[in-house]
Design a protein around this nucleic acid. Structure first.
Lengths: 219, 219
DNA sequence: GTCTATAATTAGATAGAC
DNA sequence: GTCTATCTAATTATAGAC
């Protein structure tokens, strides 16, 4: 093939590849900025600069700032499921429901540390009612809330865990598991690196022991 | 006294009283708005409107938006100490260190529910390093962090509580105690009113049981 | 001290060249 | 698809009348 023909056939492909790259870089930059500052306080210019592109690219690829936010949140929850699944699969197989629950608590602690953006975006949004909050709760939070509370109810009715209300338990576990990573910049100022692997392991061990008793991992 | 004399002596006093009222209304409105939206996303116009005054009053009374934020945060931590002290004094007297710690956990849960603005402002600020975060950590967080970790170390060295790292414990307690109230609008969408008194009591009971064992309140 | 008017920046979104 | 230039609206802070 002559160079002219090669150009004619490959140039569109290269453009498509670059477009996909721009889109992904915008998503990643948006996650980081929205998690750090919240939706309103994040400027589309700051996101574009972090993504090494121009501000109007946001409207071209996502039509609006809010559409970019929703795409970034969807992307983030996909990654959460990946991380949790990988963690659960990497742990030794479990025989009973209580150690299965313990495994999920451990997995969620590691995911919260690995994806601090998730719980940061949640607390930025959850402090006031809004269309964005209603959207994220309907689409992502409620199914997870119901899965966790259902599992806890099952353990509770069998009498193998403490007699604690499921909503109390949900918020206590999520709050205890996420705050060290949501507030990592604060912890650093206090002289503690919560993103250190040994901290994360101690944290996961402590939460399993606290919420499921000293033998949380065994039968 | 003639009306003219009364006016001459009382008008300045009335103006001072109105000034103090404007200042206080701005402080309260600022707390509510900053807690809901975070510093950058809160407009001084919204604060002034909520305080039923004009936007330039903020610069007159506090010189800048950031100075208002600092005054509001100082005001908030004063109220936290009030609420915690009142709670601790209202509970039955304690005989040992473990039940004293349990009383403080209970008091903090009630304070977190009564002053959701406190932990909302903390999470809005703590997700990224900034001058405001450094200020609030140095002035308000560090002394409280050190008091709690010191008390836990004492209990731990006596072997009367679980063997959990003090930094892990601090963030787990604060996270578990505050999230239901920080995220109260989210919980409402899930169908749970976390600001209901019976929820708060169940929550406080659960945290004491979880972190201090089933006999947290006894010797 | 309170209030209106406004100055100086910055925001999200769009037009149009390439 | 990418990029520059720009429109409209909203921001914090200030000037000055009362």
């Amino acid at each position: 093939m002559s160079p002219a023909v090669v150009d004619a056939t490959n140039a569109p492909r290269r453009r498509q590849a670059r477009s996909a790259t721009t889109r992904l870089k915008l998503l990643e930059a948006a996650l980081h900025e929205f998690a750090a500052h919240g939706f309103e306080a994040t400027s589309t210019r700051a996101i574009a600069t972090a993504a090494e592109t121009q501000q109007p690219q946001i409207n071209y690829h996502f039509s609006s700032k809010e559409a970019l936010w929703r795409a970034a949140v969807d992307h983030l929850f996909e990654r959460l499921d990946d991380v949790v699944l990988r963690q659960v699969e990497a742990s030794p197989p479990v025989t009973d429901e209580r150690s299965e629950f313990a495994g999920h608590v451990r997995a969620f602690v590691h995911a919260a540390a690995q994806l601090p953006e998730l719980n940061r975006i949640m607390v930025h949004e959850a402090t006031v009612a809004s269309d964005r909050l209603a959207w994220i709760v309907d689409r992502h939070v409620r199914p997870r809330f119901e899965a966790l509370t259902r599992a806890w109810r099952a353990l509770r009715s069998k009498g193998v865990v403490a007699d604690i209300d499921e909503t109390v338990l949900y918020y206590s576990i999520v709050g205890a598991a996420s705050l060290p990573y949501v507030n990592a910049p604060e912890a650093l100022l206090l002289g503690h690196d919560t993103l250190d692997e040994t901290f994360i392991d101690r944290h996961a061990d402590a939460l399993v022991a606290i919420f499921l008793g000293p033998n949380g991992t065994d039968a």
